[in-house]
Amino acid sequence: MENETLNAQDILKVEGLRKRFPIRRGFLQRAAGWVNAVENVSFSIERGKTLGLVGESGCGKTTVARMILKLLPSDAGRIVFNGVDLCGISDAEMKPLRKQIQIIFQDPYGSLNPRMSVGEAIGEGLRMAGVRGRNATAARTEELLARVGLSARAIDRYPHEFSGGQRQRIGIARALSVEPSLIICDEPVSALDVSIQAQIINLLKDLQDQLGLSYLFISHDLNVVGYLCHRVAVMYRGQIMEHAPTEELFEHPLHPYTHLLLSAVPDPEAGKKPAVETLESEPPESAPELPEGCRFQVKCLDNDERCRRFGGALTQAGKDHFVRCWKA
């Protein structure tokens, strides 16, 4: 990562992204401490490819997504989208770029306005995309609904009349309405039934093939990530721990945390693999202060003095394989 050269193939390149949130206490709401939600995160997404961002709850995946969308200001770092650094531009300059990056949310119930019909919700995106006129809007809405596998009868209906999977399709249609080139999928299937999950994932894959979309796919489900993603970045407490092409990561995981995640995947062959054990420790969200050195040492069985002195640099462990552990 650190020695990566500028690649014209990349649609999105994130470099050294940081975000910390204040912990406010007391009458004057002074910042009593800081939570480092995202620290020095760098990755890039190739045009037409999918990057999986994996990690446990609270590790900063969604914060990264919100910063890329500029829904949240970043503290440091660069977010280069199609050659433009999104961190340095004003809201007015961002406005035309907004259409290029869209998001699909985890919660299909909260992501649609309950007071807007499906046609209105998609029509809003179409208006932003410059589609004018009643007939053109209706035709394009039907086309988008058909693309995500819904009938045109859905247009006049309200979100509460649909199931979770159908709502997720509506959310995808809304995201597609502005013809984006990058879609951030923030755990799009984790709130759905397993059978519906497969439908949505196949839909996302088909859309990528048909429209040449790039995805940043955020998930904690490695099965899904292994199926959909071309590269995977593993995040732990705000840092990327390991970053590699999908097959490489699944076959030769180097970081103990990646081992842990892979061992947690339900697998018919799981009985054959020795399950990775970890130290009992507090979940990260309840312990804002970080340990000295490697931040995974509190959970890592194989930790010693060198972990506490570890500088925390991402090192290249193979062709296109980066890891943040001195043992690798």
Binding site: L145, S151, E161, Q166, S195, D206
Partner: peptide, 20 residues
């Protein structure tokens, strides 16, 4: 509900909740 994702042109899920 159908389980297979078919060609996008064929709608596979119809709104299920009662219309009110």
């Amino acid at each position: 509900m159908n389980t297979e994702n078919t060609a996008p042109a064929a709608p596979l899920e119809e709104p299920a909740a009662p219309r009110r």
